[in-house]
């Protein structure tokens, strides 16, 4: 399967990665090469084989319905670009918002 520029554009948008127009051709070639190489998997007869969901075959831990976290808005917001304190929340753990460019719905 060879991937064309349009496909690259489409998956780049799905992945929200800006790819400069002049890089599309090169990327299309590289990805086509990789996809072509992985397609050797089609040789394998997998009729009736279950796909693996995890190599870990065990009873996994579950949590009790208890509040063990939260109340740490300062930590949560510490690394954010341009956070907005909540009204009255300037002192840290009183809360605050992450911000993004305005979304018009």
């Amino acid at each position: 399967m060879s991937l064309d520029k349009d496909t690259i554009r489409k998956i780049a948008f799905l992945a929200r990665i800006r790819v400069p127009e002049d890089a599309l051709d090169g990327l299309a070639g590289e990805l086509s090469n990789i996809i072509g190489w992985v397609e050797q998997l089609n040789e394998v007869d997998t009729e009736g084989v279950e796909p693996m969901t995890s190599v870990a075959d065990m009873d996994w831990p579950r949590r009790d319905d208890e509040i063990t976290d939260g109340g740490r808005a300062q930590d949560i917001l510490a690394n954010a670009t341009d956070p907005e304190p909540a009204p009255g929340g300037e002192d840290g753990n009183g809360g605050g918002f992450f911000t993004v460019p305005k979304v018009v719905e």
Binding site: I8, I11, A15, L27, V49, P51, T53
Partner: peptide, 29 residues
Amino acid sequence: RRRVLIGTYVLSAGYYDAYYRQAQKVRTL
């Protein structure tokens, strides 16, 4: 970037079974 795009592609509609699911079956083998 290359790997994220490859990963996005193999999970996308119409390709999931041919690539991702097949790879996980091979993994079982």
